[in-house]
């Protein structure tokens, strides 16, 4: 049987160690999973990292969507630049040419973006936050 003082100390230091461990876990996971967001112009300027996952926001360029027979390909654009995107999956319901979209994935050395996820505007009243910040 321990005396109360010693027990208290044990509890205190044990708790401190556990907390430190948890904090390390949280911040490590946090750092590794931040998804940065870029516009097509920033990517054209070479600001995006190759081989890391990030997000691009813009609108789907008119007449750029090709989905016949294979994985959908389209171009995502802002006012100045556009970027080819490949996505192997079902496009969301609200996805359409001219509409806003956010794609998440990686860019390769040839400048083709392979999306692992495509988010579209939720409805006509909602814009992804990145889009609403763009000045027309």
């Amino acid at each position: 049987m321990m005396d109360a003082r010693r027990e208290k100390q044990l509890l205190f230091f044990g708790g401190l160690c556990v907390l430190a461990l948890i904090a390390a876990l949280i911040f490590n996971a946090f750092r590794n999973n931040l998804l940065y967001f870029f516009s097509p112009s920033q990517i054209a300027a070479g600001k995006a990292p190759i081989g890391k996952t990030f997000r691009i926001g813009g609108h789907v360029k008119k007449n750029s969507l090709r989905s016949a027979g294979s994985a959908p390909r389209f171009e995502i654009a802002d006012d100045k630049h556009s970027l080819p995107v490949v996505y192997d999956g079902i496009l969301p319901d609200l996805f359409g040419e001219g509409g806003g979209a956010v794609v998440q994935g990686q860019i390769d050395a040839r400048g083709v973006f392979t999306a692992s996820e495509v988010l579209a505007r939720h409805d006509e009243r909602y814009m992804p936050m990145e889009r609403s910040h763009e000045k027309p």
Binding site: I26, A29, F30, N33, L34, Y36, F37, T53, M129, E130
Partner: peptide, 30 residues
């Protein structure tokens, strides 16, 4: 930890320090 992952992107954006989001893997690993 979920509060951190949910509010941090909003805070960074509100302070105009860039735009980012915290991916689901963060929540899962934590």
């Amino acid at each position: 930890s979920i509060l951190l992952g949910t509010l941090y992107p909003l805070l960074i954006d509100a302070l105009d320090l860039g735009k980012l989001s915290v991916g689901p893997p963060y929540f899962e690993t934590v």
